[in-house]
Design a protein around this nucleic acid. Sequence first.
DNA 1: AATGAATGAGACTTCATTCAT
DNA 2: CATGAATGAAGTCTCATTCAT
Lengths: 214, 214, 214, 214
Amino acid sequence: MYKPELELYYQAGTLDNFTEKQLKILTAAIQIFSEKGYENTSTKEIAEAAGVAEGNIFAKFKNKRGLLNAIIEPVLNRVFPSTIDSFIQDKLSQNYSSTTEFVHALLIDRMDMVKDNDKVFKIFFTELFYDHQVRQNLINIFPNIYWQKLNTLIDELKADHILNSLPNSDIIRTLWSIMGGLVLGYLFFNQPLDDRTIDSGMTALIEAIEPKVF
Amino acid sequence: MYKPELELYYQAGTLDNFTEKQLKILTAAIQIFSEKGYENTSTKEIAEAAGVAEGNIFAKFKNKRGLLNAIIEPVLNRVFPSTIDSFIQDKLSQNYSSTTEFVHALLIDRMDMVKDNDKVFKIFFTELFYDHQVRQNLINIFPNIYWQKLNTLIDELKADHILNSLPNSDIIRTLWSIMGGLVLGYLFFNQPLDDRTIDSGMTALIEAIEPKVF
Amino acid sequence: MYKPELELYYQAGTLDNFTEKQLKILTAAIQIFSEKGYENTSTKEIAEAAGVAEGNIFAKFKNKRGLLNAIIEPVLNRVFPSTIDSFIQDKLSQNYSSTTEFVHALLIDRMDMVKDNDKVFKIFFTELFYDHQVRQNLINIFPNIYWQKLNTLIDELKADHILNSLPNSDIIRTLWSIMGGLVLGYLFFNQPLDDRTIDSGMTALIEAIEPKVF
Amino acid sequence: MYKPELELYYQAGTLDNFTEKQLKILTAAIQIFSEKGYENTSTKEIAEAAGVAEGNIFAKFKNKRGLLNAIIEPVLNRVFPSTIDSFIQDKLSQNYSSTTEFVHALLIDRMDMVKDNDKVFKIFFTELFYDHQVRQNLINIFPNIYWQKLNTLIDELKADHILNSLPNSDIIRTLWSIMGGLVLGYLFFNQPLDDRTIDSGMTALIEAIEPKVF
DNA sequence: AATGAATGAGACTTCATTCAT
DNA sequence: CATGAATGAAGTCTCATTCAT
């Protein structure tokens, strides 16, 4: 049973605790939530799409919100932390010859993850803007220690002439603005997220954050 | 009766058709929708906050969705078109001495509008990501003729060495990515939208889209 | 519109805040709750019996429990306090020539109230034994000050040789045991609560709590 | 495996037909039913408290109601009949020298049974007031033949000057009123059921039903 | 005997909308 | 215009019960 929309879970083996029917519920919910939004989807609709009795949803996910959380949580608890971790730990240990290489290493595989799980990410971003609690959860993912490490890293990259001298907060905002523009354009406005487009975004990003050479 | 949150409407004199009670409804709806989201707000709640009977909402706005549209429409029908128009017509008529001046003229007053109507814009963006129809409406705001004019403009700016040689679509995406990053950061993540921050965004944008001089 | 089952409320004019349909709901709920019990009655059933849309129940009574409380509360907040008050204040001010007269004055009109509102009292006692919270509410009706006054009263009656020398707590328990036996027998076991039966209960009570003369 | 809450069953050896798991279910059900009431307890909750699978409940007790009946039945089929029997047969065969002795013999061991099985009795009385069917079952326990024998007995006690000349029905009601007051006070209102309290109840009862001596 | 996933009827409740006053 | 009582469809959720394993 291949579940392309569940890539995010597979890595952790989380789905081992799910029965066949519960997986069908999850898959159906991802499909319909991404199409019509959480609030506009009824649990009856999900159950019918999954070919399952409605009660099953509540047996496994406690309530409708629990089903949404089961979809969103992997993005929060796996995607963001692993991105940050690899950003801070892995990348830091390497000697980047250029800003290009650094940014490239950062972007490419994240974008693949978005494309492989587009429905899940669409749900995530929709809720991110809709629900204050989800935003708070996202913020809580990044404790102070992360920000300190991130700042330290950026300072080092500045010292190595890989980043320019803009305030760190501006560098960070530019980074996620460009990335966010690519991702949201792809998810919500049918814009391409192919290699050329990503490269173009990378170029723009690099121009914006690399030091000027004279 | 000053209604700072209704700046967008005032300009057009649209509010002349509203009674005192209907304005109270509109103001209350903007407040609560921006706090809790459209789906999580009941018409009864709005009526109570406005201090009017529930029936009034339906007398003026036909249904709950009509109330939301009354809030969102000005953003679609006034903000975006006027931005595009001034972008194409006004700005075009001027002779920009530099990319900086061009971008500066474009950004500053739009950001003020966002700050003066932050609740309305929060509702707009929330719905933009939540509702496919709102996205479609936004897309429909820009008919082909606009895109043609925009492309012509960009081509001219390229010829004038005010923009670099990236594909037009990349330039446009970078532009709204940086702007969107500022706006969404302000509306949803408590980030500043002061002059310094806007300047920093402008600088990044300029670096990304201005030609490199050798 | 005569509502024999709502005597308890009438006295306070509480029902002025109820619409015709809400009174029908209340009446229907009293009828069905007393027949089948709160838990075994659905709100749909009540609405149908009242000839009203189900939503009406929740508009006035907030939820199903609120409907039960609207029935039970008058018993707690009106019947018991007024009984205690008249017991302590009114009766105390009189000079009883005998225990008989004292007890008689206490019992008779309370029993009439039970007979006039038998369904309400049946619901009340059912819930009293079913729901710990209702028991707690009943207990809270009697603050310490009441017990002090009651003890003082009983002590005085003892000094006047109207009550015997049993511990006050035993006198009180005997009193409500005999009264409770009459009431519960009537409400739950089809036993008579006519004057002769009440007189007989009074006689037993008097024998138990009056002083022995030698 | 000592089960103090199952005293009622032991005597009859009824529990021999129960497996370990079924006894756990019964014990858990008694505990939770007495705390929260039958209607507010789910079979899942019972199964979890008993540490068994939910299906076990239905394998042995057929349905949820069957589980309640298994708890209530011994009270109906053992406690009441044995009380009546001993009242009519055993006590009758003795020559009571006084009313006191008679009543004492009747009350003491019944109260011990209540204290040893308080949770079961709490469930029983709760259901007695909640469920018309349980009341009917209780009434059916006493066939006409019992009432005839009981009346004969009371008449004889009257002739022996052990009971006064009140109507038999009044004597019976006073008897179970006083007893019921003690038991319900203990089970539902945290009142003591120690020897002194029982003695006090007995005294009151005797005063009420014994003949007056001149 | 034992398990617990699965069922689905039915419960309570919300809420946009209508309409008589 | 204004009111808010009334509606009833539709929603979420619970839970006793079944049954394949």
